[in-house]
Amino acid sequence: MTIDAQKMAEQAPLLHAGDQVLLSGVIYTARDQAHKRIRSLMQAGKVLPFPLQGATVYYAGPTPTPLNLPIGACGPTTSGRMDPYTPALLDAGLKGMIGKGGRSEEVCQAICRNKAVYLCAVGGAGALAAQCVKQLEVVAFPELGCESVKRLTVQNFPLLVAIDCHGGSLFADR
């Protein structure tokens, strides 16, 4: 199934754990330090580096960009490190997250409550993921280097629905 990142709010409720998807459109990278700063901005009522409403965040810190390419390797990082920040971001409008590994019960509840989705990318395949990135722009916190917030335009990024808004999870005990 092909999904449009700009229509994640509409498409997330149609997805179910185990679905294979190809994601195209604009997504944002953000890891631990960026999440911490975004939460601080939210708490202070300040403008965020990108609109959360309907957005998708990729938990990745791309490597330096090789000559004539838009990005270096950009594999997913462990999503659980963002769990302390995620429910607030989902409540503020975030609809999609991309990473690897399981999520806390609080995040799973926030995914359901906000009709969002958690997608998994293949770990260890950052060079292959980079082939799906067509454009990159640093939009916030450039001093964080690889952990800066980047706006990526992706095309046919292969992902797996890991946690859906219906309570389905690939990480649930069977």
Results as ranks from 00 to 15, higher is better:
residue 62 P to L: 07
residue 59 Y to S: 08
residue 84 P to W: 10
residue 99 G to S: 01
residue 96 G to M: 03
residue 46 K to F: 08
residue 72 G to C: 08
residue 82 M to S: 01
residue 89 L to M: 15
residue 59 Y to R: 02
residue 102 G to C: 00
residue 61 G to F: 11
residue 81 R to M: 06
residue 75 G to N: 06
residue 96 G to E: 04
residue 105 E to D: 14
residue 96 G to N: 02
residue 64 P to N: 08
residue 46 K to N: 12
residue 62 P to G: 09
residue 46 K to W: 10
residue 107 V to I: 10
residue 73 A to G: 14
residue 80 G to I: 08
residue 95 K to W: 03
residue 86 T to C: 00
residue 49 P to S: 11
residue 84 P to Y: 11
residue 52 L to R: 13
residue 81 R to V: 03
residue 65 T to V: 13
residue 59 Y to T: 00
residue 68 N to P: 00
residue 86 T to E: 10
residue 46 K to H: 14
residue 100 K to G: 04
residue 92 A to W: 08
residue 66 P to S: 05
residue 51 P to F: 14
residue 64 P to K: 11
residue 88 A to S: 14
residue 57 V to L: 14
residue 60 A to H: 07
residue 53 Q to K: 15
residue 63 T to I: 05
residue 59 Y to F: 13
residue 105 E to T: 07
residue 56 T to G: 01
residue 50 F to V: 10
residue 49 P to K: 06
residue 93 G to H: 06
residue 102 G to M: 06
residue 69 L to G: 00
residue 45 G to W: 14
residue 94 L to I: 12
residue 57 V to R: 05
residue 66 P to W: 10
residue 106 E to G: 09
residue 95 K to D: 03
residue 97 M to Y: 02
residue 88 A to V: 11
residue 66 P to H: 06
residue 75 G to Y: 03
residue 80 G to H: 01
residue 109 Q to M: 05
residue 86 T to V: 14
residue 78 T to Q: 10
residue 62 P to W: 08
residue 72 G to P: 07
residue 83 D to N: 13
residue 107 V to P: 01
residue 98 I to E: 00
residue 52 L to M: 12
residue 103 R to S: 00
residue 87 P to L: 04
residue 104 S to F: 08
residue 58 Y to Q: 02
residue 83 D to G: 03
residue 106 E to M: 10
residue 84 P to K: 09
residue 71 I to Q: 02
residue 58 Y to K: 00
residue 100 K to V: 09
residue 108 C to K: 15
residue 108 C to T: 05
residue 75 G to P: 04
residue 47 V to R: 15
residue 99 G to K: 00
